[in-house]
Amino acid sequence: MSAPLLRIARLSSGYADFQALFDVSFDLHAGEALALIGANGAGKSTLLKTIVGLLPCASPMVAHRGESIGGLSADKIVRRGIALVPEGRRLFRSLSVEENLVIGGERGRAGEWSLERVYGLFPILREKRQQPSTSLSGGQQQMVAIGRALMANPEIILFDEISLGLAPAIIKDIYAALPAITRTGVSAILVEQDVTRALGFAQSFVCLQEGRVSLAGKPAEHSRADIVAAYFGSH
């Protein structure tokens, strides 16, 4: 059997004086969308940041296509085809909408995602292409953040809280665009507060609790009560 697209193996990580993740293991397969769920502070964002190289970890803990990528710098990991849509969108305020998209693609991999294709996915951005990114609404900014990650033509895209702080109608729009992304063969890991929405979108899930995997599998395999227990803890 060939190596999984992304393997997380006994990963521990955290910040200078605070360990946030303990022995986390799971696989992501090609074409799969995986929901990473858990309460606030469970370590979801830390995990995404560690995968993409913004936080340090020991070499064998993260493997991409069978090759160890743990400890590589973020720019090298992005070049390999793993992109992160960061929490809070974090667009470059001094860059226009189009510049934000362009800078996402300039050093990434070659592939089918281009400015045209992103504008096709989010037509409103074409109208606002010359505007400063700060002039956009929250939902539009989220579209730019997703488009910016896609421009690097990743084979794995990590979404960190893409619906946070957005109005329900806008969240619906954003989620409506996601299948168009995964259809092209891009695998995804989705960190999301809205568990029902996340599990509805993903084929598999991993639940973190206080930095450890408390439950994993396919949404249909587990009862709601199991998932709630894994989410909140059974105490």
Binding site: S73, A74, D75, V78, R79, I103, E106
Partner: peptide, 24 residues
């Protein structure tokens, strides 16, 4: 230019600039 965008992006948010495959 591309270099100029990289300058602006890195100066504004070095962490996110890395996610643009920029080696700061």
């Amino acid at each position: 230019t591309s270099l100029g965008r990289a300058f602006r992006a890195t100066s504004e948010d070095a962490e996110i600039a890395k996610l643009m495959a920029l080696d700061n």
